[in-house]
Design a protein around this nucleic acid. Sequence first.
DNA 1: CTGTAGGGCTAGGGTTGA
DNA 2: TTCAACCCTAGCCCTACA
Lengths: 137, 137
Amino acid sequence: MGAPKQKWTAEEEAALKAGVVKHGSGKWRTILTDPEFSSILRTRSNVDLKDKWRNINVTAVWGSRQKAKLALKKNLALPAPKTNNNQLTVSKVVQREDILDVKPLAVSSGTLHSPNSKEQVSRFKNFQLNISAIYYQ
Amino acid sequence: MGAPKQKWTAEEEAALKAGVVKHGSGKWRTILTDPEFSSILRTRSNVDLKDKWRNINVTAVWGSRQKAKLALKKNLALPAPKTNNNQLTVSKVVQREDILDVKPLAVSSGTLHSPNSKEQVSRFKNFQLNISAIYYQ
DNA sequence: CTGTAGGGCTAGGGTTGA
DNA sequence: TTCAACCCTAGCCCTACA
C-alpha cells in the first residue's frame, strides 16, 4: 500500500502484449523505451510490465476455480436474452469451462482511444488522504 | 470440505488490536511474526488478520460490511450534489511523516465513537463524511 | 548502479456456512 | 436473509543475482 492501485487499462495491456511480440518477453526496459509504447505505458515501470505479464500468463493458463465460478455465475445472471420480438426465450446452459477468453497475443497498437480521460492520479510516496462519503438509510 | 470455521476468540482479537496499535494497520505479517503476538495468533494467517480487522472496523461504524458496500454503491450512483445542497470543501495540510495510520477507533470497550484527534467525522442526518490521513514510509 | 526473475504481501472483491 | 470467516488474485514490494 503506497499509492492507490493503478489498474491496467485495456489499452495498456494491449501495448504490453504488442511490446512483448516486438521485443520479446523479459525486455521490459526496451519495451518501455520504444516510442511506439512509451506514451501509453508512461506511468508504468519495467517491473510493472514484468508483473502484469506474469498475471496475464497466469490467467491464460488457468485452472482457476473462482474464474470458472464467476463465468458460471455470469452466465446464470444473464437476463433472458432479449430478442426483438415476442418469442419464447430459451435459456442456454453452458457447461464448458475450458473456453473463455481468447487471448490476442498480437494486438496491434492501432488507434485505441482511452475510454475516458484517464487522469493521472498523483501518487504520493508517503502520504495518503482518504475522503469517503457514505450515505445510509 | 475446507477447514471448519474458526471463530475468533476475545484473546485473539485483543492481540490483533494490540498488534495494530504497535505496528500499524496493514502490517499483518509483521504483527504475526512479533513474538508478543505470534503465540496467540499462531493459527492465523496474515490474510486472516486483515480480514478480521476489516470486520472489526466495519462493524464498529456500520452494522455490517454488506450495508457499507451498499451504501457506497448508492453513493457512487448518486449524482454529484448540487450547489444548493451540501457542498463541502475540505482541505488538509500535512507535514509530518512520523505518524502511522489512524485507524484503531474500534477498541474493545462498549463506547466507541468519539474518534481520536487524527480523524474527523462529520455527521448529517443520513450522510457521513469520513476523512482519514494515512502516513507510511 | 541498472534490470530482471521470482517469491511475498496487501487490498479489495467475492464466496460460504451457520 | 445476514454476516463473520474464509477464498482468490491484481497490483505492488522485496531480495537475489547478473
